[in-house]
Design a protein around this nucleic acid. Structure first.
Lengths: 147, 147
DNA sequence: CTTACTGCAAACCATTTGCACGATC
DNA sequence: GATCGTGCAAATGGTTTGCAGTAAG
């Protein structure tokens, strides 16, 4: 749990840098997010946090997740359509979304880190974020389909 | 304009294959989409098509764009949050979105075509679509920022 | 003539906003 | 004590749905 503590401390510092107060709601939303690998929606985070803070409102969760996105402590998962999903894992990774069950799986590749693509892009734009997004069917759903 | 005719013919064939009727609305929505390189929202397509079919409804445009996505004649642009945006350009390409002005720019890279990443993914999933999505600020907005 | 599509209106749902109270610094 | 955050409720806005009439195959 040293890992969690470290993340929490870095998170609090980041809040202070951005002149954000450290409230229980903010901390619990952050904890709920980084302890999940399911790329939860605001609703899902809400359900989780309510276990600890029963009076928290969905609005606060929404606001907080957006704030985390703004200060770079988390981000909105890229995808097409659907409800917003969030990710607190800042390590470089990519997402595969199953269009049937909606699960999001992480995968790894360094397709852009070394290529010319990024360099070319940076000639034209200030690139803040670059991700690979893949869509399709996961194993579970392929199997179900065959029935 | 031979290019447009070719695309239209292929589009009609695709409709027939999917047992979809070829209605003026469908054709005009498709034409509006492929004649735009702005990755338009349903609203934007609606505005454009109304020039030709003044009585078309926004619902029909929405339904049609979703249908195009389903039959593979177009797709929903991957992104984070915001309104759905559509793209009728099926050539392999990537998107950069300016988070300030919301413009979407196309760019090219073949980061995944040849790598092991895709092969590895295909061991685990049925991959239907894979795109690179980048976000940041475009030149215009960087300049505006400096004022 | 059958089946599918459209337009309209209403419904839906996720997300956002205004405001007064309460908590943090 | 000043400022910012929260909870509540209402509003918003994009997207979807049910239905009756209309058009395509």
């Amino acid at each position: 749990m040293t890992d969690l503590e470290g993340k929490l401390e870095r998170f609090c510092n980041r809040c202070r840098q951005n002149k954000l107060k450290i409230t229980p709601q903010r901390v619990e939303v952050y904890k709920a997010l980084i302890s999940s690998n399911a790329h939860p929606s605001a609703e899902a985070v809400y359900d989780k946090v309510r276990g600890v803070l029963p009076n928290i409102s969905l609005d606060t969760v929404n606001r907080t997740l957006n704030t985390l996105n703004e200060i770079g402590a988390a981000f909105v998962v890229a995808g097409s359509g659907d409800v917003k999903r969030f990710d607190g894992n800042l390590d470089n990774h990519q997402h595969f979304k199953c269009i049937k069950c909606r699960k999001i799986f992480d995968f790894h590749s360094e397709p852009l880190d070394n290529t010319e693509t990024l360099r070319k892009l940076e000639e034209q734009f200030r690139v803040l974020r670059i991700t690979v997004y893949a869509e399709g069917l996961c194993k579970g759903c392929i199997e179900k389909e065959q029935n």
